[in-house]
């Protein structure tokens, strides 16, 4: 089941998160909903990301694939070039660079969709309807935990605690 607590202040929300974490709720069970980005200080609700790694890796992959593609295509239809090499790294370097960048762009977009959960929601959890300026904390808990969670949320300063 899901519980939600609505906060007006970021500090209150942060307090609630820390309290719940102390109770043994992991970051996976906690979700913060808001109309504007809420930036907590480091250590409160970190979402580790591999985006940079993925982007660099796919840029390199695209670059390598492009080099192979260009080399393959030029030898696939070998033209007499009058002394110039069939495959020239430097005069096709721009193509490798641009395609590497294309790899970086596409992967950062796709990884954004993946990491944000926009393309992997199988059994959608209920989403609270959040008014502008409100920070809503959604907690995934079992039936027995309901009471503790509600209490923690209210203690931390939630203006409203409800079942979703």
């Amino acid at each position: 089941m899901y519980l939600k607590g609505e906060f007006r202040e970021k500090e209150a929300a942060a307090r609630a998160i820390l309290d719940l974490k102390a109770q043994g709720f992991g970051p996976d069970a906690l979700d913060v909903f808001s109309n504007e980005p809420v930036e907590f200080a480091a250590g409160i609700l970190d979402r580790p990301s591999r985006m940079s790694l993925v982007v660099v890796a796919s840029a390199l992959t695209f670059c390598l694939l492009t080099i192979l593609f260009v080399r393959f295509t030029q030898y696939n239809y070998p033209l007499v070039t009058g002394g110039m090499p069939l495959f020239s790294f430097w005069s096709t370097g721009v193509v490798f660079y641009e395609l590497a960048m294309l790899g970086a762009i596409l992967s950062s977009f796709i990884w954004f969709l993946w990491e944000s959960g926009l393309i992997r929601r199988k059994n959608p959890a209920p989403v609270p309807n959040v008014e502008p300026g409100v920070i809503c904390l959604r907690v995934h808990c079992t039936g027995e935990q309901e009471e503790i969670v509600s209490q923690q949320l209210a203690e931390a300063g939630a203006i409203e605690v409800a079942k979703l």
Partner: peptide, 27 residues
């Protein structure tokens, strides 16, 4: 795209924008 405003989405968006800003500059 089914945006809900969760902090995971905001985090991913900010990270993607930071990276994209760097990449797009180079491009």
């Amino acid at each position: 795209l089914g945006w809900t405003g969760s902090d995971r989405e905001w985090h991913a968006l900010e990270r993607a924008m930071k990276l994209m800003a760097g990449i797009i500059l180079a491009v």
